[in-house]
């Protein structure tokens, strides 16, 4: 029994992180109408940038290092749009998809060149946490849940209470109408990349906090985020949130039945299945 509870808890924990990835991915999809397959590298670079600023020669404490890590991840997101996606905006979706894969490859190899392929951690000692209803919880895990909740609240406030967030929803509803209404579409698109990259960075850091860092972490988590947005209805921010949590739960409950080694295949299988049902997502047609 407690094993099941623990699995549910672990599932929620993983799901929180996937949700952050998926929300950012789906937002870019909603506004720009394409799946950014380089989103995973924003996750990975976000995590590594924190590692960079906490290590030689900076040795910033976590809370200080967070600021440049976020800042540079956002620049990376804005940069990939500016340099690659923006010039391709009017081409067909397949070109964008291939460009995104290209960026992904480039960024992954860049990180590997810089930090090597081996597993790394932030080097916090794992403190024994609390036990609650037979569930053990470390301080890191507590932080993950709180940070996710914080991010969700911020995203909610931005989207529904700030004028730029409302403009972003308007642009995703209808870009042409937004332009003739006087909404600054370029500014809105930049804002979307900022939020999406920031969520990727925070999620990547949380993931690395709970597990470890490796250059391949972006790719594998992109699959989960992608499965989550397919599950939640592509372009639906709250759908992505629930999709992410669902995938986290499904993975962690699956270990009750199958070997842990196959855990990652759950999201992959779900992605393939959902893509078979709705293949048009890859070409950027809204539902």
């Amino acid at each position: 029994m407690s094993y099941i509870l623990q699995s549910i808890f672990n599932g929620l924990l993983a799901g929180c992180i996937y949700a952050l990835f998926a929300m950012g991915l789906t937002m870019v999809y909603r506004v720009l109408n394409f799946v950014n397959f380089a989103h995973g590298e924003l996750i990975m670079w976000g995590a590594y940038l924190l590692y960079l600023f906490m290590g030689d020669p900076f040795h910033f404490p976590l809370y200080v290092a967070l600021i440049p890590a976020l800042g540079f991840t956002i620049l990376l997101g804005l940069g990939m749009d500016w340099i690659v996606f923006k010039p391709l905006r009017r081409t067909n979706r397949l070109t964008l998809l291939i460009a995104a894969l290209g960026i992904s490859f480039f960024l992954r190899n860049g990180a590997q060149l810089f930090w090597g392929a081996e597993l790394r951690t932030y080097g916090f000692e794992i403190k024994r946490g609390w036990r609650l209803f037979h569930i053990s919880m470390t301080a890191n895990q507590m932080a993950i849940i709180l940070a996710t909740l914080g991010c969700i609240i911020i995203v909610y406030l931005l989207l529904y209470r700030s004028i730029i967030g409302k403009a972003m929803r308007a642009v995703s509803d209808n870009l042409e109408l937004a332009r003739v209404t006087g909404i600054n579409a370029k500014k809105t698109i930049r804002f979307t990349w900022i939020i999406s990259s920031a969520l990727a960075c925070v999620g990547g850091i949380l993931l690395a906090l709970d597990t470890n860092l490796q250059p391949g972490m972006g790719m594998i988590n992109l699959v989960k985020a992608f499965a989550a947005i397919l599950l939640g209805g592509v372009g639906n921010v709250w759908g992505a949130l629930w999709g992410g949590i669902f995938i986290g739960l499904a993975e962690n409950l699956s270990v009750l039945f199958i070997s842990t080694g196959y855990k990652d295949s759950i999201a992959f299988g779900m992605m393939v299945l959902l893509l078979l049902l709705r293949p048009r997502v890859l070409y950027g047609s809204q539902e």
């Binding site: 409302k166 209808n174 109408l177």
Partner: peptide
């Protein structure tokens, strides 16, 4: 738009997922 030309397209001429109030706010955003 800035020069004072308003254009109301055929059919899809509101933002469906925004509230009525938010639609009007978008009208004044510039």
């Amino acid at each position: 738009v800035e020069l004072g030309i308003a254009y109301i397209p055929q059919g899809k001429n509101i933002f469906p997922s925004l509230t009525v109030m938010e639609n009007l706010e978008m009208g004044g955003i510039s």
